[in-house]
Design a protein around this nucleic acid. Structure first.
Lengths: 227, 227
DNA sequence: TGTACATCAGTGAACGCGCGTTCACTGATGTAC
DNA sequence: TGTACATCAGTGAACGCGCGTTCACTGATGTAC
C-alpha cells in the first residue's frame, strides 16, 4: 500500500532518492513506509528500523523527525483519524438532511474506512504503542465530533450543545456497533457469517436498530432487564 | 491476579516451590503467571521468559509443556474462551425461556466477562500471537455456539439446525454490538460517555434494538439504504 | 553577487538489552521384573 | 521388597538475533551582511 506520498516538498527523481544526501521529504516518506510495514506485518511486527530501511535511510534518521518509534506511529494514527473523520463527513453528507440517514451513512463510512485501511485502523486503538498527546486527542476527538453532531441533530440539540445522557448513550451504542463489526470483519468473521448480505446493507439495517432502542428514541427500548 | 491455581497435582509447600527439583504443577503455574504478565503488561509486553521467571523456573522449562510462547498464550486464550462460554451460559440461564431475554443476558455476560478479564479477553482476539489450531477453534466455536443456540430459538429453528441468513445476520449484529462495546469500554470510552447508566442497563437496552432491526425480526428494519 | 557561518538533515558504527530457543546435562519418578 | 532402567521434568549456560537509541560526525542548505 501507498509507498508514495503526495507530500508537497517531494523532489523529483522517483521514490528512491538518487544518491542525494538529503532526502527532501523524509517525514512523509517515513510515514508511508511505516504504513507499508504495518500493512504487511501488523502493529505487532512494526519496527522503526524496518520503516527507516524502506525509506532508504539510516536507522538514526527517523529520530530527527519523530523522536522515537511511538512518535512515528502516532503520526500514522493521527493521519488515520483524519482519514476516518473524512469518511464520516462524506457519509454524513450522503445522509442528506435526515439525522437517521446521516447516522446510518456515517456507520457505513466507519466500516468502509476500517476495512479499506485495516492496519491503520487497528493502530488507531493500540494506545500502548502511541504517544497519546494533545494532537492525537484532538484528531480522535474531531472524528468523534462528527458523530456527535449527527446525534445532536437527532436528539433535537443545537450545534455544540452539551449531550444529554440519552444522546451520549445513543452515540456510544452506534459507535459500539460499527466498531465491533469492523473488528470482527477484520478478523474474517463477516465472511463466515454474513450470508449473502453486503456490509452496507448490514450496517444500514442494524444501526437504526440500536439507535431506535436507546432511551428517548422511541418505544422499542422499554424492555427492562431482569435484575 | 491469580498467582495460584487449584491444579489437582499441586504438592504442598506454598506457591514458591521449596527447593524441590520438580515443580509438580508447572503447567498450571505457567498459565497463571502468564495471566499475571498479561494483566500487568498487556499482550504487547508479554514474554515467555518473564512468565517462567514468575513461576520460579528456568527459561527453558516452558518448552516442555507448551513448545513455545505461542503455545502458552494459546492455552491462556483457550481457557479464556471457556470462561467466556461459561459467562454466556450463565447469562442464557438468567434469561429463562424467552429467547429475547436469553440473548440480552448473554450480551450482559459477554461484556461483564470482558471487563472482568481485560488482558485475557484482548488476548483471545490477537490471533497473530496464538496458534490457531483445532483446540483453539473448538473453544472459540463452543462459545459462539451458545449465542447461536439462542438465536436459533428466536428464529424458530430447531437445535443444531442450520442458521438462515437472517439468523446469521442477527447473530453477527448482536456480537458486533457487545464486542465493540467491550473494546470501547476497555479503552475507557465508557467512563467518558455513559452518563449515569450502568453497563447492564446499556447493553440490555441496545441489544434488543439491533436484534429487532435485523431482517425477519419485525418491521423496524425495513429502512433501505440510499444507494 | 560573494562569502562566512549557523543550522538542518543525514550517516554509520556502536552500545547494551532482553528476547526465544537450543543444548548437553541431571535429578526425580515410576515401572517391570 | 529390591533393583535396573527408561522416561520425565527440570537446569543453566550459551547462541544469535534484531531491536531502539546514542554518538560524534559531515554534507547540504539557507541566511545575514
Amino acid at each position: 500500500m501507498a509507498a508514495n506520498v503526495d507530500g508537497a516538498g517531494r523532489p523529483p527523481g522517483g521514490p528512491a532518492r538518487g544518491g542525494r544526501y538529503h532526502h527532501g521529504a523524509l517525514r512523509e516518506a517515513l510515514v508511508a513506509s511505516a504504513e507499508d510495514v504495518l500493512a504487511e506485518r501488523g502493529v505487532e511486527g512494526f519496527t522503526l528500523r524496518e520503516a527507516a530501511r524502506r525509506a532508504g535511510v539510516s536507522p538514526a534518521a527517523p529520530a530527527h523527525h519523530f523522536g522515537d518509534a511511538a512518535g512515528l506511529l502516532t503520526e500514522v494514527a493521527i493521519l488515520g483519524f483524519e482519514g476516518l473523520a473524512q469518511a464520516l463527513r462524506e457519509g454524513d453528507a450522503r445522509g442528506g438532511a435526515d439525522p437517521a440517514a446521516r447516522l446510518r451513512e456515517q456507520g457505513v463510512g466507519y466500516v468502509d474506512f476500517a476495512l479499506s485501511h485495516p492496519a491503520r485502523f487497528k493502530l488507531m486503538f493500540r494506545e500502548e504503542r502511541l504517544r497519546c498527546d494533545e494532537r492525537f486527542g484532538q484528531a480522535a476527538g474531531a472524528a468523534f465530533g462528527i458523530l456527535q453532531d449527527a446525534i445532536r441533530a437527532q436528539h433535537g440539540l443545537g450545534p455544540g450543545e452539551a449531550l444529554t445522557d440519552a444522546a451520549r448513550a445513543a452515540a456510544l451504542a452506534a459507535w459500539s456497533l460499527v466498531h465491533g463489526f469492523a473488528h470482527l470483519a477484520l478478523d474474517g468473521q463477516f465472511d463466515r457469517m454474513a450470508g449473502g448480505q453486503g456490509r452496507r446493507v448490514f450496517v444500514a439495517a442494524a444501526l437504526p436498530g440500536v439507535l431506535a432502542a436507546m432511551p428517548g428514541q422511541g418505544p422499542a427500548a422499554s424492555t427492562k432487564p431482569s435484575p
